[in-house]
Deep mutational scan, measured.
Amino acid sequence: MGFKLLSKLLVYLTASIMAIASPLAFSVDSSGEYPTVSEIPVGEVRLYQIADGVWSHIATQSFDGAVYPSNGLIVRDGDELLLIDTAWGAKNTAALLAEIEKQIGLPVTRAVSTHFHDDRVGGVDVLRAAGVATYASPSTRRLAEVEGNEIPTHSLEGLSSSGDAVRFGPVELFYPGAAHSTDNLIVYVPSASVLYGGCAIYELSRTSAGNVADADLAEWPTSIERIQQHYPEAQFVIPGHGLPGGLDLLKHTTNVVKAHTNRSVVE
């Protein structure tokens, strides 16, 4: 069995187990497998329904001669939608809004960016022009300005110390501490036991640490421990890039980060 097929099978099995364990909360999309990078042309966006009122959005972007996937989250909030992270750029984010209108038909009224990198804030200006209120932590807003990236308009308070959590509509926002970046936030959907790890969490097929220019490698494993301790009931975990899975993604990420750190020390 090929690795790609095995990865998709694991996603399907995880979703099936969740649907059985929580039949009222989960209505997993039966329309197909989780979209992969090879299936999404740059400039297009796919939506994948995880649970009743919960979707991931998947886009792709060219970077350094390669094409990478990027995940975000959409959560229903009454007759409105909360968006977590842009679709990595203005063109993708405009396509995301169009796809949401086509498939869901509810307005996106608020959006949260989970850290300051372009795959999370690139497209904020498109959201703002569409009347979406954009939010991020003060740290993310400051770092985005320093980096020359787009800056969300509103500040999220109460997320300055490791372990801080605040309720934001249908989700809980959690600051686990520094990891992929010093400002990275985690998003949890309690009604569906869905954990969105953003770039602080890796997919299972990833074996290298990737972009760690703004990471705190020493603190990252401790931050992941905080996530595990705060959300032990999480059933569906979405990484910032690639295929979702279960809580095993947290341990896998820790292993990859520690291996990278150990290699760096040896070198």
Rank of each mutant, 00 (worst) to 15 (best):
L143S: 13
A87F: 00
T86F: 00
S208L: 12
Y231G: 01
V265G: 13
V108Q: 00
S205H: 07
A209Y: 12
D85A: 00
R141H: 04
E99Y: 13
T182Q: 14
A51Q: 08
S205G: 10
L47T: 05
F168C: 03
A133D: 10
L10S: 07
P23D: 10
T134Q: 01
Y12L: 10
D64I: 06
P107A: 15
A209T: 06
T140W: 01
T182S: 11
F116A: 15
A179K: 02
A213D: 14
I238Q: 06
A209G: 12
I201S: 03
A98D: 10
R128W: 11
G122H: 06
G122A: 06
A94L: 12
P239K: 01
V121D: 01
A59V: 09
T109S: 13
T93Q: 04
S70T: 07
T134I: 15
I84A: 14
P23C: 12
R141A: 13
Y175W: 13
A94K: 13
A66C: 05
S139I: 10
T222G: 10
H252G: 10
S7E: 12
A95H: 15
V256F: 05
T14S: 12
L204N: 15
P170F: 05
A234Q: 04
A51N: 12
T14Q: 06
T222F: 12
V11Q: 06
F3R: 04
T109H: 15
K8F: 15
I50M: 11
F63H: 05
A95C: 15
N255A: 14
T14V: 11
Q61M: 04
L73S: 02
C199A: 00
S193A: 10
V266K: 14
T153V: 11
S113I: 11
P69F: 10
Q228W: 11
V112E: 03
G131C: 03
T109W: 15
S16M: 15
E99R: 14
D29C: 13
Y12P: 02
V189H: 05
G240S: 03
A234G: 11
A87R: 00
T182E: 10
A144S: 08
W88G: 00
P170W: 03
S7F: 04
P69Y: 08
L24A: 07
H115Q: 00
G105H: 13
V256Q: 05
I227S: 07
V75D: 02
D64Y: 06
I50T: 07
D125Q: 08
S62L: 09
S160D: 06
V194S: 04
T134H: 06
Q103C: 10
I84V: 14
L195S: 00
L106K: 14
D79F: 13
H241N: 00
L106G: 14
A178H: 05
V67N: 07
F3T: 10
V67I: 08
G65D: 05
P244K: 11
A209K: 12
E145R: 11
E172G: 04
R110W: 15
S208V: 11
S38R: 10
L249P: 00
G65V: 06
A98L: 11
D248P: 15
L247H: 14
S205Q: 08
G158F: 15
P152E: 03
V121R: 03
N149G: 09
V45T: 06
E172V: 14
S113E: 04
G163L: 13
A200W: 02
E172F: 10
V237L: 09
I58A: 07
R110E: 14
W220I: 00
S7N: 04
I186R: 01
V194G: 03
D52L: 06
D164R: 13
V266E: 11
K8Q: 07
Q49L: 08
V146C: 13
C199D: 03
V189W: 00
L82G: 02
G198Y: 01
G163C: 04
L217N: 09
Y34A: 10
T140P: 01
A95K: 12
D183R: 00
P176Y: 01
V11D: 04
L127F: 05
E157H: 14
V37K: 09
W220Q: 00
E219K: 07
V67K: 05
E233F: 12
N211H: 05
I58W: 06
M1W: 03
E203G: 12
A21C: 09
A15Q: 12
A133I: 08
